[in-house]
Every structure is written in C-alpha cells, then in structure tokens.
C-alpha cells in the first residue's frame, strides 16, 4: 500500500512539474480538465449513437449500448457515493505543493467519479460499437490524464474509477441479455413511434 501511494505521488508530482513550461499545453489542459467539455462531448456522442447506424439491426445494437451505458453511469455514480461514505482520501494538492489549473474539490479523491462515469459511457458503447467505444475511451483517458496533470487525481483514483465504471457497465450488459426480450420490446415500441 505504501509503495502504491508513493508511486501515485511520484507520478502526480512528475506530471505537475511540467505545468507552466508550455502555455499551449496548459491552455488545452485547462479546457479538457473542465467539468463540462468531456462529459458534454461524451453525452453528445451517446445521443448520436442512438440515431447513427448503417441499418436497423446496427441501430438496435447501438441503442442497446446507449441503454447499458446510461445504466452503467447511474450505478457507477451510486457505487462511488457509497464507497465515499466509508473511505476518504485527500486530493493530491493537499499533501503536495502543486500548480493548479482547476478548483480544489473537497470530496474524496478515490475513487474518481469522473473516471467512473466516463469509462461507463465508453465501455457501454464499446460493447456494441467497437470503433466509437475506443474513441470515447481515448477521450475518457485524456480527461483523467488532464486531471492528474492538474493535481486533482492520483493515477490509482482514475484507475479505481475506471474499474468501477467498466465492471458495473459489464454487469448491466449481462443483465440486459438476461432480461431479453424486454429491451428489444422497449426498442420495438419506440420504433413504432419512429423514436428508435
């Protein structure tokens, strides 16, 4: 555990030492680290996934991916909330002298809720649409990296959050298969009204 914490600290301080070296990178990181850019882009991508497909069977698969991702997001959030009732970890800026690009959050650093949410979306889409899922996974990774660069997360916070998002979304993808034909019936009903 001590070794993990010291690796975490070493990574954050190593990344953060580059802040101020390249203005363009700092500006880009300031944008990416925001609570609004990556989540909004990922949510818009999720909305596009609902509509975007070559044929009706592709579209039905994409739409199941959207449903799985939404359930994954909700329950990943809940899991992080429950873990935070029992475990609190200080943010990196509390114990280290770091330059900040972001406000100083007061909630627990571990597990990282943004990582849980972003990876739940990316993995939910990945299960049904590989290319888009990989692209969203890249966006989610960039978000977590920018937060580490800004001294808001440790690496293990991001990995813990991502593991929660991916595993809970995977459980819901299995559940979705177990409760068939319910998801297909819901989508068929929406298709009658030209909404799916």
């Amino acid at each position: 555990m001590e070794a993990l914490l010291s690796i975490d600290s070493a990574i954050v301080t190593w990344l953060n030492q580059w802040m101020g070296e390249w203005g363009v990178v700092d500006k880009a990181a300031e944008l990416v680290v925001s609570d609004y850019l990556v989540p909004t882009l990922m949510s818009l991508a999720l909305m596009s996934t609902w509509f975007l497909a070559r044929d009706p069977s592709d579209r039905a698969a994409n739409q199941k991916g959207v449903l799985v991702a939404l359930l994954g997001v909700g329950f990943s959030n809940l899991t992080v909330l429950i873990i935070n009732q029992f475990y609190f970890r200080d943010r990196p800026f509390v114990g280290h002298e770091l330059e900040m690009l972001f406000y100083q959050p007061t909630d627990s650093s571990f597990p990282a809720n943004p990582a849980a949410v972003a990876f739940a979306i990316a993995f939910g889409v990945f299960l049904y649409n590989r290319a888009l899922g990989v692209a969203l996974g890249g966006l989610a990774s960039l978000w977590v990296l920018s937060r580490m660069y800004s001294g808001v997360f440790y690496l293990s916070d991001g990995l813990g959050g991502a593991a929660i998002g991916v595993s809970i979304t995977y459980v819901f993808s299995l559940l979705m298969r177990l409760i068939e034909p319910l998801p297909t019936t819901v989508l068929s009903t929406m298709r009658r009204f030209h909404l799916a």
Partner: peptide, 28 residues
C-alpha cells in the same frame, strides 16, 4: 463550445457558481 468556454471562466466548483453533477446531467 467556443462561446461557452470563451465567454466566462468555467472551471468553477458548485459552491462558487458552477453546476453539481446531478444538475449538469438534468440540464443536459
């Protein structure tokens, strides 16, 4: 996106005028 990020500082916590996660999700 350009208007949203260029018009005001947007890295604000929910106690300083930003949106908390639930509110942002509802607005979306």
């Amino acid at each position: 996106f350009a208007w949203f990020f260029a018009s005001e500082p947007r890295n604000l916590s929910d106690t300083e005028g930003g949106l908390d996660g639930n509110r942002a999700a509802s607005m979306f």
